Amino acid sequence: MKPMRIRIVGGSLAGLFIGNLLQRDGHDVKIYERSSSGLAGRGAGLVGQRELFKILRVLGCEHLAHVGVVAKERIYLNRDGGVAEVFSTPQTQISWDVLYATVASHLPMDSYVVGRAVKNVAETPQGVRLTFEGNETEEAELVIGADGMGSVVRGFVSRENRNEFAGYVAWRGLIPETALPAEVSILVDRFAFYIVRGVHMLGYLVPGQNGEMEKGKRRYNWVWYRLVPHAELAALFTGVDGRTFEYSLPRGALSETRLQTLRQDAFSVLPPQFAQVVEAEPLPSIHGIFDYEAERMVSRRVALVGDAAFVVRPHTAMGVAKAAGDALALREALSRSDNLAEALARYEHERLPVGKEIAAYGRRLGASAL
């Protein structure tokens, strides 16, 4: 494909992956991220998958696969805190923060623009027009929607663009390893679970924010999946200042009263070790679990990647790998043809069934977990 003017909406890992690849191929690439501060510091750990390792090799970042914490085994706890099962399945939690920062650093500074929210996408005879908040516009030959669950771009490509609530949410905490109570030492260096009907809790160590892997400099990441009626979501995602969020409640937005209720709930239903790590988190966040499957991934001059195309449940541990696979496939399709429509059709043909398969897998895991 001859060099094109390509604009990417969304600056998380999906946008960074495809932006780096296409810039290497000589295209004029710019990424627009709606957050005014970027996305640094928003991740914890992620499980490496084949597609992620492949894109890291392509980008010359293979070393990032080793910036992680190894959980030497999986343990499943009883309600009283005893160990019910042990499985020798070592797993490495790669640092999301370091991955994001390193991949972003491979782009020229002026090609990654924060605080630039796109509110509309429209195809024109000449190409694609982006309209930003403030009504400024920009023309491109190809637009890539990498703007995640709240995608603006997907509504242009696919008639149905609503995320479907799965019936539960994830409460999350991320605390310094030094803040772990001594009584929870059994959780250290292990991937720990507590799963009974209606309750699903897990936790594991991840690197420090700058990739630190030394003991005492790591962080403990916990996730507690809890069933929630759809009618209660608005209240759940309303912060102490009265602001309501659509899909989550960020760190620091929980009132002291609700924080104390969370801690009481933890001690009433969780093993004592997990209840204590919940208590040790002063600023938990809440993330709704949603499903979305695009019926189309492309139009004439627009393509979707990552969560903009398929929102898959976190139990799969495949969200980042899926984004990497999308980026690699789109780059390959564009490089193999001088006809944009043909290239986008090839991309969709390859990745649409993959997204559907991963989404279905996530629903099965969610049903078995809760």
Rank of each mutant, 00 (worst) to 15 (best):
S36L: 10
G82F: 04
P90Y: 01
Q49R: 07
L39P: 00
S111P: 01
I94S: 01
K54F: 00
Q93S: 15
S111Q: 15
D25M: 12
N78Q: 14
Y32Q: 12
A44Q: 14
L39R: 06
A71I: 04
I75D: 03
I55N: 06
G43Y: 03
S36A: 15
V70Q: 13
K54R: 14
A104E: 08
L22R: 04
R57T: 12
V113D: 02
F87Y: 11
R42K: 13
R42D: 12
L107P: 01
R57N: 12
A101S: 14
I75N: 08
G38D: 08
V83P: 09
I75V: 03
I55E: 01
W96I: 07
K30S: 08
E51H: 15
A101Y: 02
V114K: 01
R24Q: 08
G26E: 06
F53I: 00
G48W: 02
V114M: 08
S95I: 02
Y112F: 15
E33K: 04
E33D: 12
L22T: 02
V114Y: 09
N20G: 06
R74A: 12
A104M: 01
C61N: 13
E33M: 07
Y100E: 05
L59Y: 06
D80N: 10
H27E: 06
G81C: 01
E51F: 02
A71Q: 14
V83M: 07
L64Y: 04
L52Y: 10
L59T: 04
V114P: 03
G43S: 13
G45M: 11
Q91R: 10
E62C: 00
E73Q: 14
V86E: 14
L22P: 03
R34E: 05
W96G: 03
V47I: 15
D28L: 13
G45C: 01
L56D: 05
V58G: 05
S105I: 09
V86R: 15
T89C: 02
M109E: 10
L39N: 08
G43P: 07
R50K: 15
P90L: 09
H106F: 11
L64V: 03
E51Q: 15
N78H: 15
I94P: 00
D80A: 13
V58S: 00
Y100M: 08
L59P: 04
Y32S: 01
I55G: 02
A44R: 09
N20V: 09
F87M: 05
V86G: 05
